[in-house]
Design a binder for these strands. Sequence first.
DNA 1: TGACTAATAGTCATACCGACTATAAAGAGG
DNA 2: CCTCTTTATAGTCGGTATGACTATTAGTCA
Lengths: 251, 251
Amino acid sequence: MTAPVGRASNGHAPGGYDKHAYEPFAVTVDLAVLTVRDGVLQVLLVERGHEPYAGHWALPGGFVLPHESAETAARRELAEETGLKDVSELHLEQLRTYSEPDRDPRMRVVSVAFAALLPHPPEPHGGGDAVQARWLPYDTAGPLAFDHDRILADAHERVGAKLEYTCLAPSFCPPEFTLGELQQVYETVWGTPLDRPNFRRKVLATPGFVEPVPGAARLTGGRGKPAALYRAGGATTLHPPLLRPTPEGRS
Amino acid sequence: MTAPVGRASNGHAPGGYDKHAYEPFAVTVDLAVLTVRDGVLQVLLVERGHEPYAGHWALPGGFVLPHESAETAARRELAEETGLKDVSELHLEQLRTYSEPDRDPRMRVVSVAFAALLPHPPEPHGGGDAVQARWLPYDTAGPLAFDHDRILADAHERVGAKLEYTCLAPSFCPPEFTLGELQQVYETVWGTPLDRPNFRRKVLATPGFVEPVPGAARLTGGRGKPAALYRAGGATTLHPPLLRPTPEGRS
DNA sequence: TGACTAATAGTCATACCGACTATAAAGAGG
DNA sequence: CCTCTTTATAGTCGGTATGACTATTAGTCA
């Protein structure tokens, strides 16, 4: 149902609007902004300056404004929090909506959660007064405010799953990247080491996943043989999927 | 973010509540209730009795009440619309939230959409006055009210995808079912015929997907060799996945 | 009894995957 | 300059899963 039209099954009188037929909610967006830096999965967090949860870290977010969709609000918040000029290219994905009645002790707040993937994280840029924003490692992102631990865990799981069957991984990488960097994205998000030759074979076997940068360009990060550079191809889904190694057990 | 605490990045004064910091929204749930009957994918729809979209079919749904989560509201609506006594066992899955500002011409309504899977559909049970509820074939579910076409398509896509890598399919079947019935679920949702021996091999190769009903029970639906009966096993995910045949092209 | 129908069993060549070895191309350090 | 280390890349090999088939079994219907 979309409109506040009372229906018999609702126990409301049919007709126009009924002020008592619904309760207004505050609607917000919460963002799980993830990046991979130096082989560590990091998440953008803000420190709360007020009760409840004053001093706790929380996911960035904010209200959906009257003229906005949740997606628009999420992208606006993403731009504000990261300080990036152009976030229109970033991957932003709606996770799910969290609506437990008691998730905010003060009032009824329904929050639409999003996961965002960033390549080179711009430095956190301090927020306003009394509030700071920082990149923190996912593993040590202690207990967060509200139900944000759950949201963050859901974001991690979703991203990990989407790496398997979509071409999402380059979203974590700069425009041109080596296969080693791409592999590190998978290993970091999944928390599992991967066999390098096999990873390479599978990535290159999927047409349109990555395409070589023609100018025989190479990148030298340190010692070792220079790696060829690739950029994201046009494909969006992975056939066959790049499954993460099962921890053994089936379920 | 969860609470209406103004933050510098929001341009709001920090502190307690600011009546102008947010706009209240009506929050509803929309349900895409799907079933497979006689090899046809069917969806539960209600006919609207009022403007806008009077006379159009729409997905069932209703308001989230003040004390409810969206999941609770969805399950309550599901029970009301289907007339089922116990919906606690039914598979109910949050799809995503639709929040375009103009999706309802009258006011700002944010809707959390759910997909529900039913086995033996109970007959629609007429709704209240001026509103009827009916099962209609998915393919001929003409243009629906609001953005419900989109929601329904998203539900179909989600369910189709989840059949690949989860043990969701028995949710469409009665407690005991034949492998032929299970295969028909896949074929109907995917819209693709499957090879019967291969389907059987893959289903039985995944431990915990289905388990045979021990009493050598058999079901005779008509002619042909009687089929063994199975019930859902304890597994929740499919390893290896049961991938739908790719229409050839990769992407 | 003899089609006809549907379930179940089995075959076979190919694709894919994980584990592994081998080679190439750079830097570091003596 | 030579060797060791490091990283990228190439290739091998056996096991498993898969798609396309064929064969057999066990019922109903005429």
